[in-house]
């Protein structure tokens, strides 16, 4: 996993750095002092290496905690694992928010469209029934008019 790889890479860096800055190299740089005080030189060197390693390791821990890197690395490992069957390059942001926001909006718009289609259908059905009643009412009024006219004619 990424978390382990991160730690391994940092440890390897540190080991190689320490190996490069060997005691021999240190002593050769401080040759006169080393000749004067070999034990002290050794002691100072050990402390230097120990301090350097501790500071670097502490810094790495701090960075990991601040960035929540452990959790992020594990999460990314999972996402990568899930995508392992995907061979094609995945979508990437175009850099134009207008273009990219479209797809994010699309599901909501599609939902809204479906909702509007449904309520439109319902309203049209409601109106169809109301129109049927209106037509029936018009028919009844015509019938009444005809009956009245017939009565009037009969009296006339």
């Amino acid at each position: 996993g990424r978390a382990q790889l991160f730690d391994t890479v940092v440890d390897t860096f540190l080991q190689k750095l320490v190996a490069a800055g060997s005691y021999q190299r240190f002593a050769s740089c401080y040759r006169r002092f080393y000749k004067l005080q070999p034990e002290l030189t050794r002691g100072i060197y050990e402390q230097f290496i120990s301090q350097l390693q501790a500071s670097i390791k502490e810094e790495i821990q701090e960075i990991k905690q601040e960035g929540n890197l452990e959790m992020l690395f594990n999460s990314l490992d999972k996402i990568v694992e899930e995508a392992k069957t995907q061979e094609e390059p995945a979508w990437r942001p175009s850099g134009v928010p207008e273009e990219d926001a479209g797809s994010a909006l699309a599901p909501y718009l599609l939902k809204h469209r479906a909702y509007l289609q449904r309520i439109l259908r319902e309203k049209q059905e409601e109106n169809r029934q109301a129109a049927e009643a209106v037509l029936a009412g018009r028919g009844r009024i015509t019938e009444l008019q005809q009956l009245i006219a017939a009565h009037q004619q009969a009296w006339q």
């Binding site: 049209q124 109106n127 169809r128 109301a130 129109a131 009024i141 008019q145």
Partner: peptide
Amino acid sequence: SQGQIISSKPNYQQI
């Protein structure tokens, strides 16, 4: 959807 029916509304006042 019921536009034609609405447009052909009789004049009830006249009736």
